[in-house]
Write a protein that binds this DNA or RNA. Structure first.
Lengths: 112, 112
DNA sequence: CCCATATATTAGTGTATCATGATATGGTTA
DNA sequence: TAACCATATCATGATACACTAATATATGGG
């Protein structure tokens, strides 16, 4: 009866995942951008994203070589309410607003 | 920055603790009553209560030989909102409403 | 196909968590 | 104080978690 809620709360119960969710509140981001902003390995970021996805909090879509993650608008209301008030490190917010993927990540070949 | 929230969510991230919180939503209960209602040992119940207490979700007070636990009205609003909608096994709700401690637990000596 | 980049997955390791049983602590009554 | 009950804590084992390093998979362009 409480298992599903418990699993959802445990997904929220990790500082790195909260950090990721707060970043996605600014804008969609691809994995390599999150890796840039978080102090952990790409592998760890990927695993956190898998967990967030399987808990129904984020969705992913592909654009060229990148996989972007985005907050799911249909997440439980109580979680959405919480995320709305979750603080974001100001430098992270600014970084996300001022950078674009192609400036940050290597890209196989972009036409000038 | 996210550590405190993460710890709080991890406290909510256990089915037994959600069960306990839903029970306390009916009325204050002492440890031996919770032990009666939950399928785990008294030791386990006590440890869950300690965690709920240290996360600021419940408070305890003593009445004769019993320690009663109660929901803290000053818990974070988002948690209170969630608990308000948390379902409760009907038989538990009825048990709590129809029983009293002295009917359930052994008591050193009760005057008739 | 071959290579480079982005992402996911696997394996291994240290730590946290949740359960139990045994024991300690504390209050109440005789 | 002694005996009893309620509760808390301790020691331990099984499982879940979060990380890293290494490897696999996918995509896009020569």
């Amino acid at each position: 009866m409480y298992d599903e809620w418990a699993e959802l709360w445990r997904t929220l119960g990790d500082p790195t995942r909260l950090h990721i969710l707060s970043l996605l509140g600014i804008r969609d981001a691809c994995v390599c951008e999150l890796v840039e902003l978080l102090p952990i390995s790409q592998s760890a970021v990927s695993q956190h994203l898998r967990r967030l996805k399987s808990s129904g909090l984020v969705r992913d879509y592909r654009d060229r070589t990148w996989v972007f993650y985005t907050l799911r608008p249909d997440m439980p209301g109580v979680v959405a309410t919480f995320l709305k008030d979750l603080p974001i490190p100001p430098e992270d917010a600014q970084w996300l607003r001022s950078h674009h993927v192609v400036q940050t990540c290597q890209v196989p070949m972009v036409d000038t």
